[in-house]
Design a binder for these strands. Sequence first.
DNA 1: GTAAGATGCTTCGAACTCGAAGCACGTATC
DNA 2: GATACGTGCTTCGAGTTCGAAGCATCTTAC
Lengths: 164, 164
Amino acid sequence: MTDEGGLDPAELGAYFALEEVSSLLAHAVEQHLRGEGLTSVQFKVLMQLFEAPGGQLRMTDLADGLVVSRSGLTYQAGLLEKAGLIARAPSPDDDRSTTVSLTAAGRERIFAVLPGHVALVRRLLLDPLPREDLTVLGGLLTRVRDHMRTDPPRSAAPRNRPRK
Amino acid sequence: MTDEGGLDPAELGAYFALEEVSSLLAHAVEQHLRGEGLTSVQFKVLMQLFEAPGGQLRMTDLADGLVVSRSGLTYQAGLLEKAGLIARAPSPDDDRSTTVSLTAAGRERIFAVLPGHVALVRRLLLDPLPREDLTVLGGLLTRVRDHMRTDPPRSAAPRNRPRK
DNA sequence: GTAAGATGCTTCGAACTCGAAGCACGTATC
DNA sequence: GATACGTGCTTCGAGTTCGAAGCATCTTAC
């Protein structure tokens, strides 16, 4: 029981704590956003567009940023469009591509939701750690993320990779 | 754009890196487990039972450990029982309560899946960090987790909390 | 002991997710 | 400029999730 299939206490501690912190945080965020009438995926889409230069991105760019399937993104984008928060238009340079842009209503929605979101994250994640530790935590996680993003079996694998 | 609604770079870095690392890790784990015929929730249920003293827990105990709704747990427990990996029996001391226990087949299933799981976690999360940093990361996240678990608005809130 | 509320779990319907398959357009190769 | 393959996105069906409502049992207060 103490031996988790070959992980020592330090490894276990890091793994389980990460799992639990992210789950609890994600759950809390989800709850808050639902109260505001948004899915967390929808919120992330809006935020990505908000931060994007020119306020527009292709569907693929969005899907790569979020960790969500293409079809899932299509679904949520449909809802967002129906709600008038984003607009979809065929891309000028590539007719296959769809360019998504943030509408004025979408921007307003972000401004309405962000303060509560930030307050929540601050209360759960940021407040309990002193400034210095926060920097350390960010540094460590960034290192891990960079490693994951370059690791071989990536999520963005080619479609039907030939047998060999 | 640099000002994320009131979060400075250090805060943003920690928040976003955490978000991304946990998402990518969860996604990779999910993929691996699906290949083994298990949901990640199912796997967590099995692991909790595996680590529990006596190898059995009540449904509520399980739901508290995982971050999942009661109804969701009921659903997954039903599947696990149908697959013969767990057994449900009325609790001896409380007739409302259901005691869940791990079957021999369930234990075997864990032994079959764990090595791959550990290898995956090691490759994605543990390997890129030197031993020392791993300890630091675990320590920081544990601190945050403890804070979250004691923070006021808990997930296990009373059912219909009276107005005041 | 009995009424009122709390607690453990399940059922139900609606919403969200995914992967496979499909369609349309682009790109390469000859 | 055809044929074949790669890419961007959507549709579809199956599986999973949740919260609200419901049932049964336990606990508390009187």
